[in-house]
């Protein structure tokens, strides 16, 4: 069943702040095998002009995707999450995420399309810091495969 077009443009309430920990950044950098010291060594980060260690570019997805849970689990929208695959992902950064950030996300449904029986959902996540400054925007395209396929 196609998703309700009236959800396009719907914005969900801001998430509770996510506090970015330096050990979480280290864990993530190690998990992707990235040894750049800017992720783990405050002095190395400062030498490049950052106030503290920064997170790898895709780190913020864990935060925005959790926020997008408000959308994918919205019972009124009725997305069948067991059929969802990740189609596209894009980030536009105002600055890198860094240790100590307290980030909130506002998720908006940008578009809903039906393509060959698949529901295609574009979700925008605007990430702001404690001061309300824009840090990064994440666009996530989710594709719920047609039920008839199975």
């Amino acid at each position: 069943m196609a998703l309700d077009q009236s959800f396009v443009g719907r914005t969900y309430p801001p998430t509770e702040p996510y506090e970015v920990g330096r050990e979480k950044i280290r864990e993530f950098a190690e998990a992707v095998g990235d040894t750049n010291p800017v992720y783990t060594d405050t002095e190395a980060a400062k030498a490049l002009g950052h106030p503290d260690v920064i997170a790898p570019p895709t780190f913020v997805f864990s935060i925005t995707f959790r926020a997008a849970g408000q959308v994918v689990e919205d019972p009124q929208l009725g997305l069948d999450y067991s059929r969802v695959v990740h189609g596209d992902q894009r980030f536009v950064y105002a600055r890198p995420v860094r240790a100590g950030d307290r980030l909130t996300v506002v998720s908006t449904i940008e578009s809903i399309k039906s393509l060959a029986g698949n529901d295609v959902l574009d979700i925008r996540g605007e990430v702001r810091d404690e001061a309300g400054e824009h840090v990064v925007t994440a666009w996530t395209k989710l594709v719920a495969r047609a039920a008839e396929e199975a």
């Binding site: 990235d34 750049n36 992720y39 490049l48 002009g49 596209d88 992902q89 536009v92 890198p96």
Partner: peptide, 18 residues
């Protein structure tokens, strides 16, 4: 890209299709 540029903080946009 980040190894080439040195500072990953210089990435202003990044997108992919899976």
């Amino acid at each position: 890209v980040t190894d080439w540029a040195g500072d990953p903080g210089v990435v202003v946009e990044y997108g992919v299709r899976f």
